[in-house]
Structure formats: structure tokens, C-alpha cells
Design a protein around this nucleic acid. Sequence first.
DNA 1: CTGTTAGCGCATTCAT
DNA 2: ATGAATGCGCTAACAG
Lengths: 342, 342
Amino acid sequence: METAPDVDSSPGRVTIGDVARAAGVSIPTVSKVVNHRDGVAPATMLRVQEVVERLGYETSLVARSLRSSRTGVIGILVPEFEPFSTELLRGISSATTGTGYELLAYAGLVTGTSQPGWERRSLSRLSGTLIDGAIVVTPSAALPSSSIPVVAIDPHTGPEGHATVDTDSEGGARIAVEHLLALGHTRIAHIHGRADLASAQLREAGYRAALGAAGIAVDETLLLAGDYQEDQAAEVARALLSRPDRPTAVFAANDSSAIGVLHAAADLGLRVPEDLSVIGFDDVPQAAMTTPPLTTVAQPLTELGASAVAMLLAMLRGEPTKDHVRLDTTLHVRRSTARPAS
Amino acid sequence: METAPDVDSSPGRVTIGDVARAAGVSIPTVSKVVNHRDGVAPATMLRVQEVVERLGYETSLVARSLRSSRTGVIGILVPEFEPFSTELLRGISSATTGTGYELLAYAGLVTGTSQPGWERRSLSRLSGTLIDGAIVVTPSAALPSSSIPVVAIDPHTGPEGHATVDTDSEGGARIAVEHLLALGHTRIAHIHGRADLASAQLREAGYRAALGAAGIAVDETLLLAGDYQEDQAAEVARALLSRPDRPTAVFAANDSSAIGVLHAAADLGLRVPEDLSVIGFDDVPQAAMTTPPLTTVAQPLTELGASAVAMLLAMLRGEPTKDHVRLDTTLHVRRSTARPAS
DNA sequence: CTGTTAGCGCATTCAT
DNA sequence: ATGAATGCGCTAACAG
């Protein structure tokens, strides 16, 4: 289209050729200097470095990766940037500091149509090799056997194939429901998450287990799909809470869903926690900003990210690693849960 | 090193050549089909598409960007992934949904040594052209005149050169200090931010202006450098709060600094807000999670990101745009501020 | 120690 | 309508 009509001067970007010309050497020589490779006379090395400095040259990630296999960057593949993944990102970022690797986070789902397979697509686009290794967040499908090391965070179905890090979803769900039971609730609904994610299935299993252990039969009409999304959860919650036999408490599969439930309750004039108790899962930062502040099962999100990085770095180093790390969850009681009214 | 010994089969990644071979056509033909270009017989087109599907082929972002000028991805350049930039990312992400662009966030500062010029370096590495346009968060130096559109969020020094979006830092700082003054504080310290950022200078200016308007002379010993960082702020705050003539309130230039101050106060056994009032700036989600919840000047972070995207998209479309957008701040009173003790 | 020769995977003329 | 040739910026062999 309207590409700049740069002939060969230096309007936009400085290439290795520009440096070579300015320094009066050949391109490979510049390459060697830039990559700290030996076989270059100290004098020329200095001269080239000076020119590199002056021109502000940086090797193009693109060109380099096309040719060489190592780029020194780790890719983080996420469906989109929402609280869950950005918290993970923070943990990954601080764990990466000082390792010499840079981070490249890629959101492949911004196309709107939330087509599955974004993880395969993104991995395929970046691998090749723009990145040396990848951390894939909530892949909902099996990852293709890629040529680079890959670690999955909270993947589709149990530990399998790729290295995985996740938290004890089932145990966390039990804690959540037990908290509700201890408060005296018996009609407890569950807004479950994306069916393609193992974590969602495990949370539902934990919900059922806790209820079963308390001798309460599961009312299947109290199980609704929230897809881990605020809007979707709000919608189903509105219907649920409008029923005459509405539950006194809701266990949402993640915080976004719980926030959706909170909105639905507010719309219907229900007070939380007086008329309805709500509990979430994740403990993203915004869980503390809701009205009332959300009681939730905390996942150590930043540690989760840090663990993923640790595993990936080990794989990158060629060291043997365990293929599955599972972290614990803890109950974080705030103000959205209380004894039922009656 | 240990590159896979793939000869030409399909171990890792599927290339356009693999598709061409499998479909019995030449590479250019596949390229045309993939890029929806005409000049291909309907029959071959279908056949190629079928093979693409079957093999799971995706064009390599790397190879494509080396050759063609458009990649359909927007780059977000951040120094690192911390709450401020991740909130921005959220806003950018949701504003990008449905535009057909994908997002690539790049953290160039993970090298540990927080060398300045990361923005120039990152831009140079990605430009060329992995990305069609870039949003640079808190660049602390002048950006090189790049060949792609660039929007800066909260840049080094006032609106200049590149398109910019920021918030009313000076006004926000005045609101913060006025809130403290209204509560009855007169000895108010200020932990200021990175000197190379315009926002930090403006917040300090607002602090001085508010104090001046109240007829209070600025005690220069109450002005400390926190660099917008939690650790750094905690350190200077510890010294500050240990002084016999310690202030009764602290206005921190951003929430991270304020959190640092909170830690320092806790270490010294000072109660907040009884013994010390603390106010921050930004209103990142974690400001609500502190003990006590932090009073802060809220910046519309997600809107900030959304505005940046809107400007960038307009530039990408070749439309004229204003080169500076400034959003307003609002005071968000929580529990870390109160009347002074005496 | 340095420059020359080849490609990496892909998109683009230009022939056929 | 399709294929052969060329080059993007860079690095890895080799040659000189």
C-alpha cells in the first residue's frame, strides 16, 4: 500500500547492511561482532561497535529467528488479556527477570469469534522460531507436538503430553462448598466453567463431592454453564435467581463468573450476602474491588506463572523436569458469604 | 545446537512448501490461496484449502513479515509486566477485539539491568516489520522516528513528536493533596516517581501547587524518590518515617509506591490511617487488596488503553488524528486516609 | 582474520 | 492460471 518510499538510506530502521557500509566491513563481520563471536580483529570489532552505537542498530528479531534457532525470547500464549492471564503474566515476568530471556505475550483470540484452536494457531505462527519456548495459558485443545519446549498452564484435560502446571481445583472447590455448608447453606448452585478445561470439570467434581459428603443430593437444575465469563454467568444467574426455589448460595467456577453473579443479584434487588452468598475461584485482584468484596478460593496466580517459567527454563537448558506441578489453593473469606437468612 | 534433524518431513512445523508438495502445486499458488488473492482456479483453490486444513498450516509470522509489510498485529511495548501495564493491556485487549488485529506484548526490560532505551531497542527489534503499529507504555526516552505508527502512553516528557495519551497528572495530584489538607494534614510528604517521566514531574508540580495554594511552604526534605517502584519507595519511606519530625501523611506518586509505604509503616509499627495517612495514584486493582484498602487517585487505565488503540487504528487507516488525548482522574477514597491523630 | 556463498519461509514480479 | 526466479535481514559454513 503506502509503504515508505525508502530507497536505501536510513529512514526507518537500520539494517546490518547499513552498519557494514558505514564501518567499511562486510555484513558477516558485523554479524560476528554483534553476536560476540570470535574471529574478528580487536580493531575492527571496536570500529563496528562504535558504528552500531552511533546508528542505534538492533538485530531484527524477525530476520534473526528466520536463520538462527535461538532468539532468547519466551512466548506466552493467551486467549486474551483478562485478569487471570495478566496475573499469570506478572508472575512470569518477575520470575524471568535476570534470566536473560525476554518475554513476548501473544493474544490470538482477539479476532472476536472465539474459535477454538487459537493455541495451535498461535503456536504455529510464532514457532518457527520466533520464540525458544512457550507457555500456553488454558489451551482448550491438545497442543501439536511442537519442536520447541512448551509448558501448559491450566490445560484442557489432565496432565498429558506436555508439561503442565495447575492448582488443586477439586480440593479448592471442596473448600468453597464446605465453607458454604458450614455457614448453613444447603441449596447451593454451581456456575461451572468452560467444559473443555480440566479445571472446570474438577471444580464441578469437587462441588459434587462436598455435597455428597454432607449427604446432600445434587439438584441438577442448580448446575449452570457460565463458561468462565462474566456476561455469560450473569445471564444464567439472572434466570437462576428469578426462580421461586432459588438457591441461597452460589459457587462460581471462577471470579469473573462470580462477579457476573454479583451483577445479576444486584439487578434483581438481592442483597449479598444477606439474601445470597456468592463465592468465586482464583482471587484475581479485582475480587477485592467488588461490592461486597468477594469471598473466593485463592489460586497462587503469580506462583503459578513462576513455576511455569522455572519448568520451561529447565527444559530449555535440557535438564530433566517433572512434567506436572500442582499448587495448593486457600480459602479467602471476604464479605460475600454469610449464614442464610431464614 | 540441537536443532531437530528434520530433513523435510513434518516433525515440527508445517511450511508452505509442505502444503505445496502435498497439494501438487507450486509454492506461489499456495501463497495466493492463503492470502485470498485471485488468479487461482477454483478447483486448485479448493484442493489447496483442503490440504491447508488437513496439515494445520499457518503462515509463519516471521517469514511473512520479512517479506510483506502488513502482518495484522499490533505491538504493545512495556518495560515489564506489572499491574499498571497489565491493566492497560486489558483495556487494549478488549478495545482490539473484533478489529481483526492481534496483539503482541513485548517486555524488553526483563534483562534485569533496567537500562534506559529499552523502548528504542524493542521497537527496533520488532519493527521491520513484525508489527504494523505500536503502543509504547511509559517510554522514558524519545522514540526514534519509526516507519510504523506509534502511540505513547504516559511518556517521558509532554506531548511531543509522537501521538500520546495520558491523564491529568497534575490535577490528580492536587486532588490528592487537597484531600489530605481537608482532613487536616499539614506535614505531607511526597514520594515521587521516575524523574524521566512527565507524569512524575506533573504530580510533583500538583503537590507543590496544592500546598502553595493552602499557604504551606514545601519542606524539601519531605520529597523523596520512589521511582514508581514498591521496593524503592519502601526503602525511602522507612527512613522518612523513622525521623522524629515524620509527616502525618504521604502522597505516593503511584500505587506501587504507596504499597511500599504501607509496608514500611507496618514494619515500623505505625498504624494506617491512625498514625499515618497514605494516598496513592493509579487505582490498580491491587490497591483494593491492601491493608487497609488504599485511598488513591484513579486513572481510567482500561480507557487509557482503549484510547491508545483507537488512535493507533485511526493512524493505521491513514486517517488524521489528534496527537494528544488526556483523560481525567478521580479521587477514590478508601481506608488509608483519615484525620491526623493530634 | 575476513569476505563469499548459501539459504531460512515466504510473497512478489515476470514469464510461461 | 501457474511456476521459476528474486530478495527480505540475517547467520552458518566455508573459502581466501
